[in-house]
Design a protein around this nucleic acid. Structure first.
Lengths: 232, 232
DNA sequence: CGCTAGATTGATAAAGGTCAATCATTGTGG
DNA sequence: CCACAATGATTGACCTTTATCAATCTAGCG
């Protein structure tokens, strides 16, 4: 059996070091986590878990893109997060998952039993502290999503979203890959798919972004793009 | 010097016990936290800390209501959270607070140095685990705020907001106290103060809520109110 | 008793939602 | 290899809702 080494990435709450996100686990911690993890390879559309079902596992993403979503009483489906490498998911409440997790692309994840994880964390305060940091990071990101959704225009929300994707992707600056469908972007930003389409068209019309196909965006005017994304 | 006993409240991620939020610290843990805490009494409008300033302290609310907000580049002010008893705040990134904290009413808070807190948590994995639970709780709440802000109508968002307030207040069911101004509610829900006023008027017109003064709402039709608040 | 911050009300316009039709892409089976 | 089905993206017309702006009202307070 291969040795697994899950990794977590977050911006630290303390000053010093890099300002951006960085790997927060030591090699020893990764091996320790790996020892209670199982690797899964999943195809697009695979559901890893469903909301309101018994929460047995946490997941650490190693490769690929996934979405966490919730089905609202109104029947609408709301995407609460997109997940990429070094992200964690499996948030639970009263023993039940609070959202569903579905693969968007081919993905590799590490699956970890909650009881084993809890036991490990309670034994190892240093490792636990890193999880605390990762959760704090997630909380800040969630607040930023809230703020983004409050923005007036679709173009502003889209610019913010595209920049978030760009920052998460280690690819060359200016090239942004969008693995998800328009409808997913829409329900992440509190828009309709039509509004996403029109917003993308507007960004292109104004020369901030060019699209090469549905799943590829390129920053054309960095200054204007950043200004719009920041909400200035 | 008085003995301080900060408390934290959260919904547990594991099944069993109460389904709603409960006190998550043991008596011993409260005393331990209290030993590194200082009690502050503040008047309305007092700023506890400002965003982008050096983050030295975390705060645990003991009494009163506060708001956490962020000033956006656009000049708008966005309320990211309202805080009540047993809530924690002071989220930092790169050593800087990510938002500002201001008292709405007279309030009592416990102030805890971050370095002392971190040291304590790294020594006591069990206490640290409770903080992990509290952060997970905050993350779920933040996701729910995002979803609420995505709702179409102002009345829906308001109903959700009022029910959240009701659930946090231990007062008799059906009586909801709103300590904050209309503008604060608006910027928490992604609306304008005018829309809040009109939304409140609509809730009253439709018989879901009655208002006795600006700061007091009463549930008049529980069924319809809950249905709207849930977004059905 | 007026002052002031906040709340309310009204008129208008901007923006996205909604609905329906069309286009594009992918995958399937003959 | 092509016809066809199915899903998703796009476009257009229209409508709902809130943002915006301005004026007015109200309550608390010196």
């Amino acid at each position: 059996m291969r040795t697994l080494r899950p990794t977590l990435r977050a911006v630290r709450h303390r000053a010093g070091g890099k300002r951006g996100p960085s790997q927060i686990l030591s090699e020893a911690q990764r091996l320790q986590l790996g020892s209670i993890a199982v690797e899964l390879r999943v195809r697009p559309r695979t559901i890893l878990y469903r909301e309101e079902t018994s929460a047995e596992w946490a997941f650490v993403v190693r490769e690929g893109a996934l979405k966490a979503f919730r089905d609202l009483p109104s029947g609408k489906r709301c995407v609460t997060a997109f997940l990429f490498s070094d992200d964690i998911c499996g948030l639970a409440e009263n023993g039940l998952y609070v959202n569903s997790l579905q693969a968007i692309t081919n993905a590799v994840v590490h699956r970890i039993r909650f009881d084993a994880l809890e036991e490990l964390l309670r034994r190892d305060a240093a490792l636990e502290f890193e999880f605390l940091c990762k959760l704090a990071h997630e909380l800040r990101e969630s607040q930023r999503q809230t703020i983004a959704v409050m923005r007036r225009t679709a173009a502003e929300r889209l610019a913010w979203f595209l920049r978030m994707l760009e920052q998460r992707q280690s690819a060359e600056q200016g090239h942004i890959h969008l693995p998800m469908r328009r409808a997913d972007i829409a329900s992440y930003l509190g828009l309709t798919p039509e509004a996403v389409t029109r917003g993308c068209a507007e960004l292109q019309r104004n020369g901030l972004i060019t699209f090469s196909g549905i799943h590829q965006a390129n920053v054309a005017n960095r200054t204007a793009f950043d200004r719009l994304a920041s909400g200035a």
